[in-house]
Design a binder for these strands. Structure first.
Lengths: 209, 209
DNA sequence: TAGTGTGAAATAGTTCACAGCC
DNA sequence: GGCTGTGAACTATTTCACACTA
C-alpha cells in the first residue's frame, strides 16, 4: 500500500503541512508573529484557498484581522506529527546515497533521527557515521526490534530491495522510504513511499523543451 | 511552474511510462517477447486498466491474443522521450548527494548523462568525478550555453538554491530537478520538479503507526 | 474591508464495465 | 475464454465564490 489518508488527514495535506512548518519556522526566526494564508501560499507556491483548507482540516483557525499565529500553528503541526509513535529510523545500504542521507538527517534534522544503519560490506560494520552505528545486515532483525524502530529507508540495489524490505517488515518496521528503482510489495497495513530519482529526472527532461 | 501535461501526455502517465520501460527492459533481457496489460500492471503495481489507458494515450496498440510486443513497445516509449531535445544534464552542488547522483546516473543510466558539475569549493574544481568534469560556479553560464545543456539538478543548500536556479535559467536551462528544501520560483515556461526527501520521510513516519 | 471558513463547482485522475476481437 | 480499447461512472483534489467576522 502506498501512503494515503488512512488517518483523517489526506496524504497531500500532510505533505504540505511539512512544508508549511518549514516556512513558518523561518518566519518565526525572523520575528514574525502572525501570517496570512496568502503569505504562506506565496512561499509554498500554491493557492491561499489551499492553505486555508489544509489548516481547516487539522482544525486550526486564524482570525481575519491578524491571520494565523505563527508559533501556535507550528506547535499545532508538531503535535499532529508527534502523537504518532515510531520516530526511530533505520537505513539499509551504506552506499554513497546512504551516507548522504545519514549526513543530511543526522546533522540538520532534529526530529526523525536515523539510529541504525545496515550493510553487508564487512568494511563498513561497526564504524560510526554521523552519530549512527553501522551493523551487518544479519543483525538487522535484532537491532530493529530491540530499538523499536518503525521506519526504514532502503538505499540498496534494486535486486535486493525486496529481500531487505521483507526482513524489515518482519522485524517490526511499518513504514518504508524506498530509493531503489523497484516497486516493493508490502502487506496492506505497511506504508511505502518511493523516491524514484531517475524517473523524476526523465520526467523533467521530457517536459522541458 | 511545476511539471504538467503541457504536452499531450499527462505527467502521471509519463512517470508511469518510465517505470514501464524499466520493467519491459527486464522482460526483454529474460527473453519475453510479449506481455499482457495485467502482467505489466502487477509489476508496476497499478491496475491493468491504467496500463492499457497509458499505452492508448501514446497511441500504442496490443493484440488481444498476444498482448503487447515488448521490444516494439520499448522503442515506442524511447521514441517518445527522444524526440524531445535537450538531454544534456548539469549538476550544481558537489556534496555527498551530488556525488551520489553522479555515480548513479553516469555509471548506470545510459541516457541522460550528467555532462558537467559545478561547485564553489576550489578543491573540487577541475577534478573529474565519474566521467564528469567539475567547474567553478562562475563558469556555469559559459559551460551550460556552450554545451547546450537544458536540464539542471540542484543539490545546493536551500539558501543559495534560488540564486543557482536563476543563473541556470539565464544560461538556457529549462528543466530543473530540485533537491533543496525550498520551492524555487521560475518563469512559467520552465519546469521544476522537487525531490523533497525530508518531507517524504515525515510523511511515511506519519502514516505508519 | 481585507481575510477567514466552507459549501459548491470545476478539474484531474482512476476504476468499472462491456463491446469487439483473436 | 481471456484480453484489448474505450465510454461512462466514480473518486480525489483544487479552485471558486461568497457569507461572515474582527
Amino acid at each position: 500500500m502506498t501512503v494515503s489518508g488512512s488517518n483523517g488527514v489526506p496524504a497531500k495535506t500532510v505533505e504540505r503541512l511539512v512544508v508549511y512548518r518549514r516556512l513558518l519556522q523561518k518566519l518565526a526566526e525572523q520575528g514574525d508573529t502572525h501570517v496570512h494564508s496568502h503569505e504562506i501560499a506565496e512561499l509554498a507556491n500554491n493557492s491561499a484557498a489551499q492553505v486555508r483548507r489544509d489548516l481547516m482540516i487539522i482544525g486550526y483557525s486564524g482570525s481575519p484581522a491578524k491571520g494565523y499565529d505563527v508559533k501556535d500553528l507550528i506547535n499545532r503541526i508538531n503535535r499532529l506529527f508527534e502523537k504518532k509513535g515510531g520516530q526511530k529510523v533505520a537505513l539499509v545500504g551504506i552506499g554513497k546515497l546512504g551516507r548522504a542521507l545519514l549526513a543530511y538527517f543526522n546533522l540538520r534534522q532534529p526530529r526523525l533521527k536515523i539510529v541504525a544503519a545496515f550493510d553487508n560490506d564487512a568494511e563498513k560494520i561497526d564504524t560510526e557515521t554521523h552519530g549512527c552505528k553501522c551493523y551487518h545486515i544479519d543483525e538487522m532483525t535484532r537491532v530493529i526490534s530491540e530499538e523499536g524502530i518503525t521506519v526504514g529507508i532502503v538505499t540498496v540495489p534494486a535486486a535486493v530491495a525486496q529481500h531487505v524490505t521483507d526482513l524489515m517488515l518482519m522485524a517490526g518496521v511499518t513504514g518504508i522510504l524506498n530509493f531503489a528503482p523497484t516497486r516493493l510489495k508490502v502487506p496492506a497495513l505497511a506504508v511505502v513511499d518511493d523516491v524514484d530519482i531517475a524517473t523524476k529526472l526523465e520526467k523533467v527532461a521530457f517536459f522541458c523543451d
